[in-house]
């Protein structure tokens, strides 16, 4: 397994670079043009692509590492997004064993649920962490408003996923592998 990882180091660096690029796009570039609520989570689409394309330990490790980059870019906690992306990978991996993801609607639905599940995983991972390092007057988020924001994010990301996956397929290779059973 380790030899295989070493062989894939160039790919690892390529995906890492893409990860950083997407963090920059969704945190700095796109908010200049779009209302913050409408900024898609491009990193998720990359995770979805990796989950389809690399159904292996390498793919899981990549998703974990991209989550680590996202955590580091925020500098508050290290780990929650890594865990959330790993769960997304696992979910897509399990479903792709059963279905062929060639259908537009199926990909869209998959992306939508992957974003939702990933956010739930994030919420669970951070639920019990000390919420306030500086403030001692912390509260819980308004779940109603958070739900709307996350629903919008999932919807926009899902709608974009089939198109971005096509772009990825063109430059990085087709993501569909026929190992569904």
């Amino acid at each position: 397994m380790i030899t295989s990882f070493i062989e894939k180091l160039p790919q690892f660096f390529l995906y890492s670079l893409l990860g950083f690029l997407f963090i920059f796009l969704q945190s700095s570039f796109l908010p200049g043009f779009l209302p913050l609520y409408l900024v898609p989570n491009l990193l998720f689409i990359l995770i979805i692509y990796i989950s389809f394309k690399h159904k292996s330990h390498f793919g899981a490790f990549l998703c974990f590492m991209i989550g680590i980059y996202l955590d580091l870019s925020k500098g508050i906690w290290l780990g929650p997004w890594a865990g959330a992306f790993t769960i997304s990978f696992l979910l897509i991996f399990i479903f792709s064993q059963k279905f062929y993801f060639t259908n537009f609607i199926l990909i869209l639905g998959m992306a939508f649920f992957a974003v939702i599940i990933s956010n739930i995983a994030y919420a669970l991972l951070t639920f019990n962490l000390p919420r306030a390092r500086i403030f001692n007057l912390a509260s819980e988020p308004s779940w109603n408003s958070m739900f709307i924001v996350l629903f919008l994010e999932a919807l926009i990301t899902a709608l974009l996923t089939p198109f971005v996956l096509k772009v990825f397929s063109k430059f990085l290779g087709n993501y569909i592998q026929s190992n569904a059973r």
């Binding site: 899981a60 929650p80 064993q97 190992n179």
Partner: peptide
């Protein structure tokens, strides 16, 4: 990808998830 045993990947992901939980708590 076809030769990788799904159970092994699920196990590997579980390990990564636990690692991320530990990292979150520690950080």
């Amino acid at each position: 990808s076809n030769t990788v045993e799904p159970k092994r990947i699920i196990f590997f992901c579980t390990c990564l998830f636990i690692l991320s939980a530990v990292l979150s708590a520690y950080s």
